[in-house]
């Protein structure tokens, strides 16, 4: 097994699929020669040639539209949107054209496309590079939404996403690209899209998170443990489909939960998770489920992002509230 950071694991997934299936293509802005602004696709053009891995003109809507057109002709595009804020330019193609293709054609056509984009705060990036826009996609019928938190999942989820016959919005947290290395198997394996992962077992409170917030939640769980509180941490991995069964199973054990997201508090993934908990596990709850999230403002300029983002301390605070309810 190789040691890889998350960025290398995502690249390795693309390499495995480029090798396995000639219909897989990688394209986007600057993804070719230098391998993208974060080097996620580094070396792939050299290995697979410009026909398979290529730069496009700077136009996100066209990148999305190109993917949709190639997708209905049997190619499996992995299209990179360079920064998360740029998806606004591509939203029609991603969230209408790709997401509705199967429905509009009654199954005649589909969109086997992965839209990759980096996102996520805490890296002092420029404006609109770090926003958590997964909520927009989660509100959109017909597109899956995947956010890995570690190298192993990232590779397995990316391979699963490329093989999926429906569009997948694959969001890669900037702060996790090079955060740490972990063991990643060589060759092919998949992590099923739609299955959450219990990353830490506990019996007192469930902390539900995804992306970078999984690590913040684990830090909070470490703090809680110092006071004898055993927190269970769930990494959602996929927001659409959402693995409510794993959440409910955990709540049956802990009877208390909090949901952590980087995105703004209102009407987001956390709100949806809580709604589903209400539908499926309300009689197992001993306290209201709380959210730890960004405030309902625009994502801040870099100077105050560390205080804007959920911290272990805020998670501990929320956990104590549900424990002492």
């Amino acid at each position: 097994m190789a040691q890889m950071n998350m960025l290398e694991a995502i690249r390795d997934a693309m390499r495995v699929e480029l090798k396995r299936d000639e219909n897989v293509l990688i394209f986007g802005e600057d993804v070719g020669k230098v391998g993208g602004v974060f080097r996620v696709t580094e070396g792939l053009q050299e290995e697979f040639g410009e026909e398979r891995v290529f730069d496009t003109p700077l136009a996100e809507s066209a990148i999305g539209g190109l993917a949709v057109g190639m997708g209905i002709q049997g190619f499996r595009p992995v299209a990179e949107i360079q920064f998360v804020g740029f998806i606004y330019e591509a939203m029609d193609q991603m969230f209408i054209q790709a997401a509705r293709m199967r429905y509009r054609s009654g199954g005649r056509y589909n969109s086997p496309i992965v839209f990759r984009t980096p996102f996520g705060g805490g890296v002092k990036a420029a404006e609109l590079h770090t926003d958590s826009l997964e909520g927009l996609a989660v509100q959109t019928p017909g597109i899956k939404v995947v956010i890995p938190s570690n190298p192993y999942d990232a590779k397995g989820l990316m391979i699963a996403a490329i093989r999926d016959n429906d569009p997948v919005f694959f969001m890669e947290h900037l702060n996790l690209y090079r955060a740490f290395r972990a063991e990643v198997p060589e060759g092919e394996y998949t992590v099923e899209i739609g299955k959450a992962n219990v990353v830490r077992e506990g019996s007192d409170v469930t902390i539900i998170a995804y992306g970078m917030m999984v690590h913040t939640a684990v830090k909070a769980a470490d703090e809680l443990e110092k006071n004898g509180i055993k927190a269970e941490v769930i990494d959602l991995r996929s927001l659409v489909p959402l693995d409510i069964d794993t959440i409910v199973a955990s709540i049956k054990k802990t009877n208390r939960a909090i949901v952590v997201q980087e995105a703004q508090k209102t009407s987001g993934v956390a709100a949806e998770v809580i709604a589903q908990i209400n539908e499926k596990a309300i009689l197992h709850l001993e306290a209201p489920v709380l959210r730890v999230a960004g405030p309902d403002t625009v994502y801040p300029f870099a100077q105050i992002e560390d205080t804007w983002l959920p911290t272990p301390a805020r998670i501990v605070d929320a956990a104590n509230k549900v424990l002492n309810f």
Binding site: G65, G69, G71, Q93
Partner: peptide, 8 residues
Amino acid sequence: LHAAGVAM
């Protein structure tokens, strides 16, 4: 835009 993708 789809025409460009189909043509490609």
